[in-house]
Simulated scan of single mutants.
Amino acid sequence: MDSDLEQLCSYVNEKIGNIKKILSIRNLGQDPALKTTLSKIGDEIITVNELLNKFELEIQYQEQTNRSLKELWGSLEEERKDVEHLKEHVPPHLPQLTATQSLVHKPALDPKESDKVEEPVLPKKPPKEQRIIKEMHFITMDEFNGVPTYMKSRLTYCQINDIIKEINKAVVSKYKIMHQPKASMSSVKRNLYQRFISEETKDTKGHQFIVEADIKEFTALKVDKKFYVIMHILRHCHRLSEVRGGGLTRYVIT
Results as ranks from 00 to 15, higher is better:
181 P>R: 03
163 I>W: 06
96 Q>L: 15
63 E>Y: 04
126 P>V: 09
64 Q>C: 04
123 P>T: 09
117 V>G: 12
209 F>D: 01
19 I>V: 13
196 F>Q: 08
149 T>C: 02
24 S>G: 15
79 E>R: 12
160 I>Q: 01
245 G>M: 04
216 K>E: 13
101 Q>N: 14
128 K>T: 06
76 L>N: 08
215 I>L: 07
226 K>M: 08
85 H>L: 06
233 I>S: 02
51 L>V: 07
150 Y>S: 07
79 E>G: 10
29 G>K: 04
193 Y>V: 01
201 T>R: 03
228 Y>Q: 05
241 S>E: 04
204 T>F: 10
184 S>W: 09
180 Q>H: 07
218 F>S: 01
177 I>Q: 07
235 R>K: 11
146 G>S: 13
83 V>H: 08
48 V>G: 00
164 I>Q: 03
197 I>R: 15
59 I>T: 10
28 L>I: 07
116 K>L: 12
92 P>E: 15
251 Y>T: 00
175 Y>S: 03
204 T>K: 09
199 E>L: 10
229 V>K: 15
118 E>L: 14
88 E>F: 07
200 E>R: 11
66 N>A: 14
60 Q>R: 08
64 Q>M: 06
200 E>T: 11
127 P>Q: 11
34 L>S: 10
77 E>H: 05
6 E>Q: 15
156 T>L: 00
186 S>E: 07
117 V>D: 11
223 V>P: 06
25 I>R: 13
